[in-house]
Every structure is written in structure tokens, then in C-alpha cells.
Design a protein around this nucleic acid. Structure first.
Length: 749
DNA sequence: CTAATATTTATTTTT
DNA sequence: TAAATATTAG
């Protein structure tokens, strides 16, 4: 029974409910039992989540501390907390609201001892994980070149995504990495993490699962506590997160998941769309609510997005509609350009035109498939003096100097943090090289000690050269001194002391490289950031779990980002460049995952289009330089999937682009009945001719060109055909070098 | 131990 | 092409 049963009238009279449409209201008011809210793009998902949360608390169905609300990003969590505070005030603070990882960490810190950790465990980032794995791979005598650690790391992460500890990995699942030794290394990796009292991101949930299954009393405590559970972006949950939720929701069964199967774009991170598809069978008696009224985009944009996504199979199916006036709607602009430079030029011109018509730059975004595409735009925008910002890319705390500073702090906070130790024993240089480090490792392993303790032992002994011994002694003494003062002085003061006394600041000051001053600036910024926290532990937690990319500075800038990082955002005008086969949909995605990969690319297209409120511009280039090589490109099949009635094609003559054709494939090649496995076996697009084309040699004449022909290309000038396949030619140009182009773009010289 | 040189390899990255 | 990484020479 809820603590305070509310009379039904309270529910009906609640003012916040009046602002909802019928479907939203149903999703908010269905408080008993499991609920799945299928929320299409722009249908007021966040409003439903926060209102439901407020409703639960306002009707006194639960205390704030009895509600668990999970998001994927810190940003989403922050937004939800702010909106909740606006609705119900300070009580919002008591709700268990956060990312899966933050909540997992919160629970894990409370019960760390039960899974063999202490509560001050370190949360490793990718860099640390990789360094650790590299050591293990080297120790196992595995050739790093043949079996890269990063591949192993990906394997381990996928196992963790599935909730699999080493002993749970099915025998057939070991994979062929280093002849099936991946599993043994996974085990070694976990052991190593335990000895250094560290966890990685995956562990935050994995250890929770272990904890819950091994300690029924702990599980029961949380099951009892969480009367209501809310989950955002349910389509992106992986198996581990699913299991975690299922365990926690078991007692009260008041689980409300919100998601959109059409926006699932993280399967490569272990997300299982299946979780949302099978919700009904997982939680029998679940209420399914569809949010289909779109408040964001114009009818043309919605129709274009719908036209594309309709090509996917296995959807739960939603039809977005809008009350917006169709007469006040611009069609989606589709434009073919000569190359990426022209594309950037065109986008720049359009943006300037929008700007002249009074549009704000912050309401304009360029969404690309891959990071490298931003370069062309940046160059153009710099030339135009058009203010822009690139969202994504390396984060503040991933910078070298920040990570170094953090390593010092981590080591002070948690002496067993060997990874932190290794990172900074010799930064700045204090004469502790790989030989000394090797000796340290050996001693540490022999006596099962952390590296710092091994260092103490070696300083006392006489196995090390005198110079190395005194260098180590100096370092360890300093470390002890800092640790001793950590309790007395405020943590902001501590960093200053550490950076100065360690010689780190001095090292940067003496560094003549142009980015040294910037690094010093960053360190100052770090100190400022630290001031907002009570203590070192809180700060370190924030850094590893919460610190996200540079926040919105509020300036009027065009946003440049990948389609992935655009999820959840919206803009008046959205540019979607690079819609070319191979790039978008990404060839790699199709090769590796066949039909499923293609469909995920299509969802990405859907996400991109639905970011736009009023205007969307799709473009593609006939030629693109990839890895320094010019490639002729074929316009994306997605362009042909856009419904003609809702697009306006404005092409320069001859740049309509070659349409995507499923060459040598039966009709409907990505159709309902066949996986795209054959695309893996498809021959390379171009076969280089083995020998130089000699006269009299029998060369098949394809598309009017043959090997040895002298040709002219508008951009590259004169050249000689070196290889022919279908309508593609490899040409050795006199000035532009070797290029691969389509026959349509060259003529006989 | 550092610096110069060779080699390799290229999506997406909420935490 | 260009950045990141590995190797080798000093």
C-alpha cells in the first residue's frame, strides 16, 4: 500500500494534467503496473516523464526517495531535475534521478565490500582501460599488432553490456580474438581491476547485478524502496540495464519506460531494440501508450521522415501527425553538389541567406554522419567569418594535462590506483624510466602489492640503481606529504600544491610548444571547477561520471555535430550533408551488420530529419576525398526514399547524382526476405589492372572507356584510364594523381 | 631515456 | 591525407 492513498478527485483536479493531450495524460495517470510509452520524435516525451514524476509525488503515491528515474545522459537527468523542481519544488531533490551509471555507482559505493571493493573505488575511463589491457596482452605474449587491445576492449564491453561476467560467458562465445584467449584475458582484466580497487563503466551495472543476485537481502531492500521506476530512452538500454531494471521493478511492478524504436541508433554500444519490442511479453498486462502528435516539425518534414523510416521492417509502428498548417510548410530541399567543398560553400550561402532573413544562427545545425565531415564546413565558415561551434569531440577531462592532474589526485585519494601511479611517476620526468617501472611491477606482482607499496620496498632494498632509488624515494615522500595534507587543507589548495611541488606547472611553463599556455589555462579551469565540490571524493566522482562536454555558451553560433550527438536536440533549420552511398548509409555498418546495420543507418536519417522544426536541407556530393583518395560517389538510397511530394530538388545541371542501384542484385535487395550478407562478399568496386595497359592487349570495353584511354575530367584535367569496372574508372591524372571517378564525369580527350 | 623515423589505419561514442 | 602509434637510432 502507498503511504498516503490519494482521493481520485485530487488526480482529476491537478492543474498540470490540463496541459496534456489525451495520450500524454493516459501515460501520466496510469500509475499501477507496467507502462510502455512509445514516444515519437517531438511528441512531448520529457513533459510526460516529468509530469508523471510530479503526479506520483503530488498524489502521495510515494515519497521522493521511493522513486527511481533513469536517463542515459547527464544532460537529460539535469533537465528532468530542473523541470521537476519547477513543478514541485525542493522535494525533487529526494528522487533517485540520474544516469544508469551514476545510480549504479551510488548503490555500489554503499555495498562495495560485498563485491570485493572498498567504497572509494576508482572509476576508470577508456584510456586507463586500454592501458591496463595492453599490459595484460603483452604479458600473455600476444602480438598486439595482430590482436589489438582495442578490439579486446570492445569484446569485453559487449560482454558487460550483456550482463556477462567472465564465468557467465557461454563457451561458444569466446570469439576468435587471439585464438579464443579473449575470455581468459577478460578474467585477468577483472582480477586486475579488483586488485587496484577500480571499476570500469560496464562494471558499475555488472557489479550491481552480482550484488543483487548474491545478496537477496540487499536486493529486497531496493526492491522495497523503489515503488515507482521511470526510464527514459528505453530503446537504448542494453541487456545489463534491462536486467537491472527488471530486478529492481520486480516487487512493485510500477515500471514506466519511455522510448522510440525508430530512434535506436546505439546498437553498436550494446543497445537492444528488442528490449522495447518485447516489453509487453516481459511485463504482462503492460499498458502501451503511443504518443503520435508531433509538436515540433512541419508536415513536409514529418512526411519526409515518415517516408524514410517506412522502409524499415520490424517496427512497432507509429504515425506522427501534426496540427501545424500544411500551407505554412517548406518542402525538404535536396541538392546535389560537385564535391564536399561545393557542398560546404552551398551550405554556407544558405546559412547567410537565412541570417539575412533574420534567423538566429543558434537555430541552425549541420548534422553529419562522421566527424571528419565537419572539416570542410569549418574551413568554409572560417572563410565566411560565420560563427560556429563543433559539438562533440574530445572533452575537457580527456585532455592530457587534466588527466595527469587527476592521476595525482586519484593516487592521493586511493593509494592502490596503479594506473594513476603509472601515469604520473615520471611526469614530469624525474628519471624513472621503463627499467625501473618494470622492476616495480615485478616486485608488486611477487608480493601482491600496489605499485606505491612496491616502490617503498624497492627504496629500502638495494636491487635498484642508486639514481632510480632516490628518484622513487623523492616521489613517494612527496606523495605521502600530499596525502597527509589532503585531510587538512581544502582540496582546491591541494591541487595547487601538488601541481607546483610535483614540478608539473614548471614543466609546462618551460615547454616552448604553442599549446603549453593553453594547458596551463586548462589546469586553472580545473581548479575553478573543483571549487564547486565539497571534497576530493565528490569531485572525482563528478569528473568520471558527470562531467560532460562544454555546456551551451549561449552565443549565437551555428552548431556542427554528428547525427548521433544530435539525438534529443531540435533546431529551426537542419542541414544534412553527405547523403552518399558508403558514407551514409555507412558501408562499414552494412558490411558488419547487414540489414540490421542498414536499418540503423536509416533510423539515423530519421533522427536527423526529425531534429528540424521548419527547414531541412539534404545534400550529396558527386566526388569526395576519403583517406586522401578521390572517390566518385553515388547518391544515397535514402534520398530516393524521400517521398517526392515533400521534397524540392534543386540541382545544378548534371549533378543530380547517379542513383543508387543495387548492382547485380535482385530487385528489392534490402527487401524483406534476405539479409544483406552478400554485400560482405561483394567484389571490390574497382579492380586495379595488374599490368600496365599495352597496345594490342585485349581490354574489355565497358561504358565507352577502356584501359589506356586518354580522358579529360572537369576537375582533375587530363589522364589515362588504368582500370575499369562497370561505370567506375581508375584514372592516372597528369596533375591530380590517381583517382577513381565515374565514367559520367570524364570524356575522351 | 628521448627523439626521430617508419608504419599503419581510418564511423558513430549518451557513461 | 594525416593522425596516431610503433620502432629504432642516437
Amino acid at each position: 500500500m502507498p503511504p498516503f492513498a490519494a482521493p481520485a478527485e485530487t488526480t482529476a483536479a491537478a492543474p498540470y494534467l490540463a496541459a496534456l493531450n489525451p495520450a500524454q495524460a493516459r501515460a501520466v495517470e496510469a500509475l499501477d503496473g507496467p507502462v510502455l510509452v512509445l514516444a515519437g520524435a517531438g511528441t512531448g516525451k520529457t513533459r510526460v516523464l516529468t509530469t508523471r514524476l510530479a503526479h506520483i509525488l503530488a498524489t502521495r503515491r510515494a515519497f521522493p526517495g521511493e522513486v527511481l528515474a533513469v536517463t542515459f545522459t547527464n544532460k537529460a537527468a539535469r533537465e528532468m531535475r530542473e523541470r521537476l523542481e519547477a513543478m514541485i519544488g525542493a522535494a525533487a531533490g529526494g528522487v533517485w534521478l540520474g544516469t544508469f551509471h551514476a545510480l549504479g555507482a551510488r548503490i555500489l559505493r554503499r555495498h562495495a565490500e560485498l563485491v570485493g571493493l572498498t567504497s572509494n573505488f576508482t572509476i576508470l575511463d577508456t584510456d586507463d582501460q586500454l592501458r591496463l589491457l595492453k599490459q595484460l596482452v603483452a604479458a600473455a605474449n600476444i602480438d598486439e599488432r595482430r590482436w589489438p587491445s582495442r578490439v579486446l576492449l570492445a569484446l569485453i564491453e559487449r560482454w558487460k553490456d550483456r550482463g556477462l561476467t567472465p564465468d557467465k560467458v557461454p563457451p561458444g562465445d569466446a570469439g576468435d580474438w587471439a585464438d579464443g584467449r579473449a575470455l581468459a584475458l577478460y578474467r585477468a582484466y577483472q582480477e586486475r581491476l579488483a586488485t587496484v580497487n577500480a571499476v570500469d563503466f560496464g562494471d558499475l551495472l555488472l557489479h550491481n547485478l552480482t550484488l543483487f543476485t548474491a545478496h537477496a537481502d540487499v536486493l529486497a531492500q531496493y526492491q522495497q524502496r523503489f515503488r515507482y521506476l521511470l526510464v527514459d530512452e528505453y530503446q537504448d538500454t542494453n541487456v545489463a540495464q534491462y536486467l537491472w531494471l527488471r530486478l529492481l521493478a520486480q516487487r512493485h511492478r510500477n515500471l514506466c519506460c519511455v522510448g522510440d524504436d525508430d530512434q535506436s541508433i546505439y546498437s553498436w554500444r550494446g543497445a537492444q531494440v528488442e528490449n522495447i519490442l518485447k516489453f509487453e511479453s516481459d511485463f504482462p498486462g503492460a499498458l502501451i501508450v503511443r504518443l503520435e502528435e508531433n509538436y515540433r516539425s512541419t508536415p513536409d518534414i514529418l512526411a519526409a521522415a515518415a517516408g524514410i523510416i517506412a522502409h524499415n521492417r520490424g517496427r512497432l509502428g507509429k504515425t506522427l501527425w501534426t496540427r501545424a498548417d500544411a500551407g505554412d510548410s517548406d518542402k525538404v530541399t535536396v541538392r546535389g553538389l560537385w564535391d564536399a567543398e561545393q557542398e560546404a560553400r552551398w551550405v554556407g550561402d544558405e546559412i547567410e541567406a537565412l541570417q539575412r532573413r533574420g534567423h538566429k544562427l543558434r537555430e541552425i545545425a549541420i548534422l553529419v554522419r562522421a566527424g571528419f565531415q565537419t572539416r570542410e564546413f569549418e574551413e568554409r565558415f572560417i572563410a565566411l567569418a560565420l560563427p560556429y561551434r563543433v559539438i562533440g569531440g574530445p572533452r575537457f577531462y580527456e585532455r592530457q594535462e587534466i588527466r595527469d592532474a587527476l592521476a595525482y589526485l586519484r593516487l592521493i585519494h586511493q593509494p592502490a590506483d596503479d594506473l594513476a601511479f603509472e601515469r604520473i611517476v615520471n611526469t614530469p620526468r624525474r628519471g624513472i624510466g621503463s627499467a625501473t617501472l618494470q622492476a616495480l611491477h615485478q616486485a608488486a606482482r611477487a608480493q601482491a602489492l600496489p605499485l606505491v607499496e612496491a616502490a617503498r620496498a624497492l627504496i629500502a632494498g638495494d636491487t635498484l640503481p642508486r639514481a632510480a632509488r632516490s628518484a622513487l624515494a623523492g616521489f613517494v615522500t612527496a606523495l605521502d606529504r600530499w596525502r597527509a595534507s589532503a585531510g587538512r587543507v581544502p582540496h582546491t589548495e591541494l591541487v595547487q600544491t601538488v601541481l607546483d611541488e610535483s614540478g608539473y606547472t614548471g614543466m609546462l611553463q618551460a615547454d616552448p610548444s604553442p599549446d603549453a599556455p593553453g594547458r596551463l589555462e586548462n589546469l586553472k579551469e580545473l581548479v575553478v571547477a573543483m571549487a564547486e565540490f565539497e571534497n576530493l571524493a565528490g569531485f572525482l566522482e563528478h569528473i568520471s561520471l558527470v562531467m560532460d562536454n562544454a555546456a551551451d555558451t549561449g552565443g549565437d553560433l551555428v552548431s556542427l555535430m554528428t547525427l548521433h550527438s544530435a539525438k534529443g536536440l531540435e533546431f529551426d533549420s537542419v542541414f544534412l550533408p553527405g547523403w552518399e552511398e558508403g558514407l551514409f548509409p555507412s558501408q562499414r555498418s552494412i558490411n558488419e551488420n547487414g540489414l540490421a546495420g542498414l536499418e540503423e543507418e536509416r533510423r539515423l536519417a530519421y533522427v536527423g530529419l526529425t531534429r528540424a522544426r521548419r527547414r531541412a536541407y539534404v545534400s550529396f556530393a558527386a566526388n569526395r576525398r576519403i583517406h586522401g583518395q578521390w572517390q566518385a560517389s553515388v547518391r544515397s538510397r535514402f534520398i530516393d526514399e524521400l517521398p517526392k511530394a515533400h521534397i524540392e530538388t534543386v540541382n545544378e545541371p548534371g549533378l543530380g547524382g547517379a542513383p543508387y542501384r543495387a548492382a547485380a542484385e535482385p530487385a528489392a535487395p534490402w527487401g524483406a526476405d534476405r539479409p544483406l550478407v552478400h554485400s560482405r562478399a561483394r567484389p571490390p568496386l574497382l579492380v586495379e589492372s595488374v599490368r600496365p595497359p599495352g597496345r594490342g592487349q585485349e581490354v574489355p570495353k565497358v561504358g565507352g572507356f577502356r584501359v589506356g584511354d586518354r580522358v579529360f575530367h572537369q576537375k582533375f584535367g587530363y589522364g589515362t584510364v588504368r582500370a575499369v569496372e562497370d561505370n567506375r574508372l581508375a584514372i592516372e591524372f597528369e596533375h591530380a594523381g590517381d583517382k577513381k571517378v565515374m565514367d559520367a564525369f570524364v570524356e575522351h580527350a
